[in-house]
Structures are given as C-alpha cells and as structure tokens.
C-alpha cells in the first residue's frame, strides 16, 4: 500500500526557516486536508516535497513507499509517483499543451513504453471533455494566457493523465467558480482509489464539501498544530481560526517567525 511518510521536516527559503519540524503520514486510499491561514507554510510544504530548488530542506525525512524522496531530483520524484497541482503554475510560451502533456506522459511511462500519438490524443480529449475544457486548449501554449480557473483545470488534466500514486493539490480551489469547483472535484473523486493518497491544501472549507476528507489538519507557524476529522473543517468554516490560536496560545500564526 502506498504510504507517504513525513518526519520532522524542516525547510528554509532564502535563509528563513518556514517548516519547523512537520510530521505526517498518509496511506493509500486516504484523503488528508491541510487548512490554515495565509502565510503559515502550506505551499512551502508542497514545494519542499516536490523538490523546488528554492526550498532548502535542512532536516527530517520523507519517504514514498520506503524510497527516500529527499534524495531524488524533481523529475525522479514525479516518476516515482508524486504529483503536485501547483498554486501558481508556470506559463511556458512556445510549448503547446499537448506536446508538453505527451512528453510528461511518456516520461512517466518510461523509455520503450511510450504511448502512441493516436491513443494519447484520444485519452487527452476524453479527459478534457470530462473537465469541460475547450479542445482548443490542447494547441495553446502551456498555461500562457490561461485564466486562473483554466490553469487549475489544466493542473487537474495533468493529474488525470499521469495517474500518480500520490497527489498534492495546493489551493486548487482558489479562483474557481462553483461550477468549476464541482468539475475539478469530480476529477479528483474519479481518481480516488484504495492505492492512491491525497493531500489537499486549502484555506476554505468549500472544496471539502465536494471531496470529503478522512483527516483534517490545521497548519500554523510551519507545523501541524491540530488534527481531526471532517468536523474540524466545518468548525473552522463556521468559527474561523481564532479559537485554535486561543486554544494553543498563538498570537502570530504565520511561518517564518521565531517561535
């Protein structure tokens, strides 16, 4: 069974420590949600797991199915089955969405096992249809001139084509209207399976109305400060984060502070 194990993870950006010893274990079939106000280190966690070069990991261990993730290059992590739908996906002019997607799918499948062009196009078109994306988007340059919502759908499209073992969604709901939210959530639910784990980062409850999490964690000051079930998300939605801060005696919840 797929397991992502994060143990005492510490990470710095530009010399500033953001993640201050974060531990979390996620098994295949589980959906974990991480919630928290802005600036508490949620995206830093996602970036450190994916291996963004700006985020320096200073301590801790991360394994995906007993493989040491932190030892791997970014592309190796992806090929090992990790997928991150980014909060701010890059725009790359001159590279068409379909050329990019095919390169990615083939990289995941490995040399000698490339998908045929016809088959790939059929798959891409059917997934795009499910996401209610205009087919024209396959010929557009990667994310260039896409609206916020279009970029998010494009992230989900990549997830669906790559069929990763472990998925991190970073604020995939931001900038989506209610219809788009439902479509994106359907895409995620379609991929739910007993051997696939999910980590959903959000600071709103509304996505969790469509994708019911098994566990909800609250992140503040670069750590998980509270965990619970779906009812925790509902309470956060109703009452905000102040009660958590009060309970824990936190005044400034953001990361990068001296705790």
């Amino acid at each position: 069974m797929t397991t992502l194990k994060i143990k005492d993870l510490r990470s710095r950006i530009e010399g500033k420590e953001i993640l201050k010893g974060l531990s979390l274990e996620i098994h295949g079939g589980e959906i974990h949600a991480i919630m928290g106000p802005n600036g508490t280190g949620k995206s830093t966690l996602a970036s450190a797991l994916m291996g963004h070069p700006k985020y320096e990991v200073t301590d801790g261990r991360v394994t995906l199915d007993d493989e040491d993730l932190l030892e791997m290059e970014v592309d190796e992590r992806a090929r090992a089955g990790l997928f991150l739908a980014m909060q701010y996906p890059s725009e790359i002019a001159g590279v068409t969405n379909s050329d990019f997607l095919r390169s990615a799918v083939n990289a995941r499948r490995g040399e000698g096992n490339e998908v045929s062009l016809i088959r790939f196009i059929r798959q891409m078109e059917s997934k795009m249809k499910g996401l209610e994306m205009n087919p024209e988007f396959s010929h557009r340059y990667l994310n260039e001139g896409f609206s916020g919502g279009e970029k998010k759908r494009n992230e989900i499209l990549q997830m669906m084509l790559l069929e990763p073992k472990f998925v991190i969604l970073d604020e995939v709901d931001s900038g989506l209207d209610i219809d788009a939210l439902r479509i994106v959530a359907n895409g995620v639910n379609e991929l739910r399976s007993p051997d696939r784990g999910f980590l959903i980062i959000t600071h709103y409850q509304r996505l969790l109305n469509y994708i019911t999490p098994d566990f909800v964690h609250v992140m503040m000051q670069g750590r998980i400060v509270k965990s619970g079930g779906p009812e925790l998300a509902h309470r956060l939605e109703a009452e905000g984060y102040d009660w958590v801060k009060e309970e824990l005696g936190i005044t400034d919840e953001t990361a990068g502070q001296d705790a």
């Binding site: 963004h52 592309d75 790359i92 001159g94 390169s103 990289a107």
Partner: peptide, 20 residues
C-alpha cells in the same frame, strides 16, 4: 522546475523551454 515536476528530465525540460 514545473516541467520536471511532471517527470520530464532536466535535459528535456531545458530543451522544451529553449525550443519554445
């Protein structure tokens, strides 16, 4: 980074960006 996060090797990613 974005391209590599989809499994594309550094070499190939650089090529895609330059060619683009």
């Amino acid at each position: 980074y974005y391209l590599m996060s989809r499994g594309i090797s550094r070499n190939e990613a650089e090529y895609l960006v330059i060619f683009g």
